[in-house]
C-alpha cells in the first residue's frame, strides 16, 4: 500500500472492564483506508465493529471501555493522543458518523435545520443566517425540500430522518465518514434510496468511508474493501473481489452459506454451528476453532497469524494456504 493513507489503525486493543470480568471487545486490530475508498466492516453482533469505529471517534464510554493499546493515525496524526478540545475540532468537521437508528439519533426538540446548522456554526465561522441557509442546501442535497427544515424529527418518516442524519454528517464536508449500519432500521425500498444517495454523495465529494454492516449484499453494492470481524479480530481482509470470489476464511465462507440465495433453490441452509464465544472467556488459539468445521489440533493451541493469500488479501487462518481445509 502506498503512503496516501487517510486512516490507519495500528494494533488497537479495547477492553470493557468491570469488577469481575474483562470483555475483550477488540484485540490487535489493524486497518487502513485511503482517500475516497469505502471499507466494509462486516461481522455479527458482538464482533467489535462498533467499538472499533467508536474508538476512532473517541466516543467510547469510559469507564467501562478502555483503549489498552494501539494508535489511530488520521492523516498521520494520532487521534488517541489528542486532547478533548483538539478532538472536538476534528469530530463533525474531518470525521463524522452516521448512527444505526435514525429514530433516536436526532434531537426531538430542535428543528432539523437548526440541528444541521449547529454543526456548521461549531466548525465554520459564519452567521446564524448563513448557517441556516447552508443547512437548507444540505437538505436539498439529500432530497428533502428545504422548507421542511423547520419541521421537527417526529414529522419525518424513518428514511427521511436517516437523510437528515446524512445531511448533518456531510454538512462540513468531512474527509472521512463512518456509517454504522445506516440502513438496518429501514425498509428495503427505502434502504435502496438511501444507499443510492450515499453512493452518489461519496462519488461527488470523494469522501472516504467505513461502512459497518452485517448484510453482505450491501457490501457487494457499495464497498471497495472488506474486513470481516469475528470476536474482536479481523479474520479476513481484502478487496471486494477477494472476499467474494476467493473467500479464504472458513468463517467468511460460513457467512455466505447462511444467506438464502434468491436465484437458486436450496433445500437447506448450512448454518455455522454453535454460537459466538463469550467475550470474557475467549477460546485459546483461533477464536473461531470451536465452530470451525475444519479445525485441527493446532487451531486449538496456536493463534493464527495473518497470511497474505494474494497481494492485499489477508486471512488469519492456519489452513488458509490449503484453502481453509486440511483435507483439500
Amino acid at each position: 500500500m502506498n503512503g496516501d493513507k487517510l486512516l490507519e489503525i495500528k494494533n488497537l486493543t479495547v477492553h470493557y472492564e468491570s469488577f469481575d470480568a474483562t470483555v475483550h471487545a477488540v484485540e490487535n486490530l489493524n486497518l487502513s483506508l485511503r482517500h475516497g475508498e469505502t471499507l466494509g466492516l462486516v461481522g455479527e453482533t458482538g464482533a467489535g465493529k462498533t467499538t472499533t469505529v467508536k474508538s476512532v471517534m473517541r466516543i467510547l464510554p469510559d469507564p467501562p471501555a478502555k483503549i489498552v493499546s494501539g494508535e489511530i493515525l488520521f492523516d498521520g496524526q494520532d487521534l488517541l493522543k489528542l486532547s478533548v478540545k483538539e478532538m472536538r475540532k476534528i469530530r463533525g468537521k474531518q470525521i463524522s458518523m452516521i448512527f444505526q437508528d435514525p429514530m433516536t439519533s436526532l434531537n426531538p426538540v430542535m428543528t432539523v435545520a437548526e440541528q444541521i446548522a449547529e454543526v456548521i456554526r461549531l466548525h465554520e465561522k459564519c452567521s446564524k443566517k448563513d448557517a441556516h441557509k447552508k443547512a437548507c442546501d444540505m437538505l436539498e442535497l439529500v432530497g428533502i425540500r428545504p422548507e421542511r427544515g423547520s419541521d421537527y424529527p417526529h414529522q419525518f418518516s424513518g428514511g427521511m430522518k436517516q437523510r437528515v442524519v446524512i445531511a448533518m454528517a456531510l454538512a462540513c464536508n468531512p474527509r472521512f465518514l463512518i456509517a454504522d449500519e445506516p440502513t438496518t432500521a429501514l425498509d428495503v425500498t427505502i434502504q435502496a434510496q438511501v444507499l443510492e444517495l450515499m453512493k452518489r454523495l461519496k462519488a461527488q465529494y470523494q469522501t472516504a468511508m467505513i461502512m459497518i454492516t452485517h448484510d453482505l449484499g450491501i457490501v457487494a453494492d457499495i464497498c471497495d474493501y472488506v474486513a470481516i470481524m469475528y470476536a474482536g479480530e479481523v479474520v479476513e481482509y481484502g478487496t471486494r473481489e477477494h472476499i467474494f470470489n476467493h473467500t479464504g476464511h472458513p468463517y467468511t465462507r460460513g457467512l455466505f452459506a447462511c444467506i438464502p440465495d434468491i436465484f437458486t433453490d436450496q433445500n437447506e441452509l448450512e448454518p455455522i454451528n454453535g454460537l459466538t464465544p463469550d467475550p470474557t472467556q475467549l477460546p485459546e488459539g483461533c477464536r473461531f476453532h470451536p465452530r470451525c468445521p475444519h479445525a485441527t489440533e493446532r487451531c486449538a493451541k496456536e493463534h493464527p497469524e495473518n497470511i497474505e493469500l494474494a497481494p492485499g488479501h489477508f486471512v488469519a487462518c492456519h489452513l488458509a494456504n490449503k484453502g481453509g481445509n486440511e483435507n483439500a
Binding site: A192, L195, D221, N245
Partner: peptide
C-alpha cells in the same frame, strides 16, 4: 431493491 451478496449479478434497481 434487495441487496444481493454476489458480484456476478448486476442489478437493475427500480428506485421508488
Amino acid at each position: 431493491a434487495v441487496p444481493i451478496p454476489r458480484l456476478d449479478v448486476k442489478q437493475e434497481r427500480i428506485l421508488l
